[in-house]
Design a protein around this nucleic acid. Sequence first.
DNA 1: TTACGAGCTGCAACCGGTTGCAAGAAACAT
DNA 2: ATGTTTCTTGCAACCGGTTGCAGCTCGTAA
Lengths: 323, 323
Amino acid sequence: MAATIRDVARASGVHVSTVSRTFSAPHLVNTDTRNRVLAVAEDLGYRPNRAARALTTGRTHNIGLIVADISNPFFPPLIKAAQAHARARDYHVFVADTDEDPLVEEELIQTLAKQVDGVLLCSPRLSNRAIERLHADVPFVVVNRRMKGLPTILMDVGEGARLAIEHLTGLGHRRIALLSGPSGSWTSGEMSAAATAMGGVELVILGPNAPTERGGLAVAAEVIASGVTGVLAYNDLVAIGLIEGLYERDVRVPDDVSVVGVDDIVSGRLNRPKLTTVAMPTAAAGRMAVDLLLQSFGEGATPTLATLDTSLVVRESTGEVRT
Amino acid sequence: MAATIRDVARASGVHVSTVSRTFSAPHLVNTDTRNRVLAVAEDLGYRPNRAARALTTGRTHNIGLIVADISNPFFPPLIKAAQAHARARDYHVFVADTDEDPLVEEELIQTLAKQVDGVLLCSPRLSNRAIERLHADVPFVVVNRRMKGLPTILMDVGEGARLAIEHLTGLGHRRIALLSGPSGSWTSGEMSAAATAMGGVELVILGPNAPTERGGLAVAAEVIASGVTGVLAYNDLVAIGLIEGLYERDVRVPDDVSVVGVDDIVSGRLNRPKLTTVAMPTAAAGRMAVDLLLQSFGEGATPTLATLDTSLVVRESTGEVRT
DNA sequence: TTACGAGCTGCAACCGGTTGCAAGAAACAT
DNA sequence: ATGTTTCTTGCAACCGGTTGCAGCTCGTAA
C-alpha cells in the first residue's frame, strides 16, 4: 500500500496536520520540523493523494479538454499546447474524445465535472442551451463557438473565409463552392455567413459534410456537377479528401479546380499538391484557453472574448482559372 | 453547490447509507424506498461524486492512457477504440501526451497513479527498469513493448518487416534501407532484428530518426547517398516525409525508389503515391489493452502476452526495380 | 514582572461517500 | 409459541487529506 499522511506523521513523531501543512502551507511549519517530515516522506515514498485533497479543498488541479475527434489533426497542436501550458501551472489535462456525438459529449462533461476544476470545450457539437445548462456543474472555456456569458476563444474564420474567397476571385474564379461542415459547428456557420455576405461571386453551398477526408471524398461528384472552378472546404481534411475524389474522376487540382482548405494541418503541407489553406492559431488558442480557465477560478468573474487572427497560406492547390 | 448524498438523505427521510446503497448496491434496498430516493435524487440533480467514492473503494473507475505523441495519426484510432470500449464498461479514459519525453512520461504516470485504477502505456519511451519501478504505484498494460511480468500487447511488427522486405525483394530490390525510429522504441528494435535476420538482401540501417514527417524529410539525402532502391520506414509519417524529401531532389517514388511505411494511417491512403505499408491492428490493440487492464484488477494475477498480427497492404509507393 | 504578540503545533470536525455490524420486522419452519 | 431466516435500515467508523481554533512556548516591550 502507498504511504499516507498518517504513516508519515507516525514515523516522524508529529501530528497529521503538521505533515499536511508541510506540503500545503510550508511557511506555517518550523524549518527543522519541515525538513524532518520531508525526509521521512521521501523515505516512505509518500506522495499526496490529489483526489483526497480535492475532497476538502474543492480544487482538483485537473482540467478537462473535450474535443470532437482526436483523429482530426487540427486538435493535437491545441491539445499539446494546452497540456504543456497547464503543466507549467501545476495543472493536469485530461483529454476526452466525443466522436462527434453530442450525447457522448454531454455524458463526458457530467462525468468529468466532479473530477476537474474546469473544462475546455473545443468545437462543441452541443447546443448553446445544453452548454448553458451544464455550465451549472462546472466552469467552461469554449473554443470555436460564440457563447455569451462564458469565456470564449474564437479564431476569426470569417475573416479567413473572406481572404480565401478574395484569393480565389483574384485568380479569376467567379463561381465558388463552399463545403460546409457538421450542422452543430459554429465555424461552419461563420464561414457561410462571411462568404454569403461577399459580393462579386456566385456561391454554391454544399453540405453539411463530415469533417473528414471521407466527407471530402463523398462530395467530389457534387462539386464537379455544380460547375464551380474554386472550392473553399470546411477544413483541410475535407479538402484533401476532395482533391483525391476529384483526381479519381480525372479532374485536376489546381489545373481544373482550385481548392482552399482551413486549419493548415501538417499533412496538408506534405500532400501533393500542397494545400492552400487558412492557417489557424491552434497552439495559441490552447494556451489562452488554459489561461482563461485558470483566471476564471479567481475572484472577479470575467467572461472574456478573445479573437485570434487567421491568415491565408498560399501553396499549390489554387491557381488561375482556365480560360 | 451540487447536491450531496446527505441532501438526498435528508429530503427523502432515510439515512445516508440507504442513499449510498441505492446507487452502489440497489438490490440491498427495498423497492419502494429505492424509488423514492431515486425520485428525490433526480429532483435535486444529485450525481455521485466519483472522487469521494474512490477514496473509500479504492476504485476510481478511470484509466489513464499515455502516448508519446497525439499528433501521430497512429494513436487516435487506438485511443478512440480504448475510450469507447472502456465507456461500455463504465470506465473513463484520460489521455495524456508525453511529447516523446521520458521525464514527462514518468511525471505523468506518477500524477495519474492516484487518480486512475490503471494505466495503458502505449509505445513507452521509458526504460524497462523505470517501468518496473513505477509499476509499484499503479497497474500497467504495456502496448508495443515487450515487458515480462506485465500484461503486454504487441503487434507483430517483426513479421510486418519481413513481409515488407520480401515484397521488396520480390520486386527485384537487393539493397534496402531501414529507417529506424527513436532509440527508446521497442518497435524499432524489433524491425531491425527481423530485417537483419533475413538473408538475400543488403541492408543499410539509417537512424535513429524522429518518428515524424520531419524525420523522413531530414533523412532523404542520406537515403539517396546510400544508393538503395528500396526503403522500409519506421512508420508512415517518416515514409511520407521521405517521399516528399526525395521528390524535392527529383527522385521519384516508386519509379526510382520504392518506399514502404508502417501503421497504415489514413493520410497514407490519400497521399500520392498511395503508400504501401504494414497495417497495424490499432483499434483491436486499444480494446484488448482495456480488457487486459480490467482483467488484471480481478483476482488471479495473470500477466498475459497478446500478439496481434500485422499485414502488408500494397499500394502505389512500391514497384519493380528499374533495370 | 507582566502582558502581549508571534510562531508553531495539536485537536477535531469536515469533505462525500462506503461498508461491517447489529437490530428490528416480517416470513417461515418446527 | 418459539426459533430461524431473510429483508431492510440505521449506526458509526473509515478513506486521505485540510483547516479553524485553541493552547503552548518564547521573545520582547511596557
